[in-house]
Amino acid sequence: MIVIEDLEVRLGDFRLLIGGLEVMDGEYLMVLGPSGVGKTVLLHTLAGLMKPCRGRILVDGEDVTNTPPEKRGFALIPQNYALFPNMSVYDNIAYGLRARGVSEDDVRRTVTELADILEIKHLLGRKPNQLSGGEQQRVAIARALAIKPRILLLDEPLANLDPRLRSKAREFLKGLHQELDFTALHVTHNIADAVYLGERIAYMEEGRLVAVLRPEEFLVSKYAKPYIDDLMPVFRSFHS
């Protein structure tokens, strides 16, 4: 279980405050909020790329607040996937395993297994610039899952996909999570992603965590109102 306690991060004039947040083992937690509320700052702090000025991050009771990113075991998937352009898909997926000194036989076994599950076996010899957005996303997920991370940190991984691909990718992520049972913290500003994928939704406003609710609770809460109000005129215009 990952516990965030009384976390404060400062970035110029911006301040992120997370009083308390727990991510259960195997849970898919969505972090929802408008742009600029500090969702990515939270993700980067969890990954160890930014230092908090107060608070603690605990993994199964172990304090990892000052642990460097390479020793933390939190795998980050950024919005642009950040696949290494100088490496093939195979080498991208193998990267974390090789950094950990895993033998080449075990690297090959893990990469092949993940490529099978994520249906990217035919892409292993390609370079990232030869992949579509959806394929890049799958490779980034495979690369992150290869190291068996304590948690997968996803920063708007669906944002760059067109609407049709986006809903397919959403279904794919849900199926993958059910199959592999990994722990994930997925940041989004899209309510459909949050409700469809999240077992719980952590809602953020102005640098603060304001509520953690189940999707069905979230949909009837005051926090969902701006999103629904935004969609209502569209529905009404269709009806008329």
């Binding site: 980067h44 990113p69 390479e70 939190f74 980050l76 950024p78 352009p85 100088n86 974390g96 190291i147």
Partner: peptide, 26 residues
Amino acid sequence: DPMLEYVARTLGASRFRAFTTVTLPL
């Protein structure tokens, strides 16, 4: 993109390894 190096580090690469395997070749 510095994010390439950050991701390499979250995957378990030290600063030096991330630099020599990702940033420097690029």
